[in-house]
Amino acid sequence: MAMLEVNNLKTHFRTQDGVVKAVDGVSFSLEAGETMGIVGESGSGKSVTALSIMQLNPKPPAQYPEGEIIFEDQNLLETSDKRMQEIRGNDIAMIFQDPMTSLNPVFTVGNQIREAIRIHQNLSKSEAQEKTVEVLRDVGIANPERRAKEYPHQFSGGMRQRAMIAMGLSCNPKVLIADEPTTALDVTIQAQILELMVELQEKYGTAIVMITHDLGVVSQLADKVMVMYAGRAVEQATTDEVFYDPLMPYSWSLLRSLPRLDTAGEVRLLPIEGTPPSLIFLPEGCNFSPRCPFVKDECHEIDPSLEEKKPAHKAACILSVEEIEENKSRVDEELGVQT
């Protein structure tokens, strides 16, 4: 059985201007030890999906009109706040993007990690202290005894993110949700953090949901990928399938618009025209139709649902696999791209 299962999750926010469908029917499942990448542009619903799993969206304005999040036979959307507090941090932990704002500046780092441990595990103060030093050592912080007594401002960006990971992993969670964990960091530090996450995953068998806009990070870490656009999952498959044979025009265009280290400078970038739609005024038909290079008349009328195009490869597009492949070569030819 899957470790975490999300079925048709909808997270809507009621605002003055109308209902924002931040997440609108997302489903996925995650096994122990597996890593799933969620990619998409800002506002595509990646973070709201994560916050829904953690039940951290403020209610109101957040509502969950449909869907379920199943973790260990319970629907997290229906569990009590008290039970949710036990799960959060203990069974499902989350690492946030900005390590500066997610640590409390007036408490020592050790104090904050110890608090998390003491809430969830029945340990004495000194045992919790020992455990704190141990997890800090685990994430590669030198001098953990001394460092535990320091405040967040005395840590560098990379070390703060390590401390956040230490806190996230202090209770050996079964699921770890990492929301852009390396976006604020330099590449050399990013490499350290990603390596650390893989190491800890191998050690503890944690299932990881990796939210990022960096397709490089996804191809390095993820076993499977979910591509999001305007609150919907538009493609779901193994990482290789999505990168080598994308079946949703959005994922295909996104991959083509990236400057890549291996081909940069030799080819002109192929941007996706236009901008992502407003979540209040979504276009008629397919959300991507105004920007889609493969668009045809029906696309403006029919809203495609996510369907299995190939075994274990789902995409939301009304075109058939053959039509998509034809379109890919047609656009390539028009632009004179060699593949």
Partner: peptide, 27 residues
């Protein structure tokens, strides 16, 4: 050289084959 090796490339096959030089410590 290590900066270049630290950048993840959006190509899963290449990523699996890559040998990464991970610099220790901070700037």
């Amino acid at each position: 050289a290590s900066l270049l090796s630290a950048i993840p490339v959006p190509d899963p096959q290449k990523e699996r084959e890559r040998q990464r030089v991970v610099l220790s410590g901070d700037v």
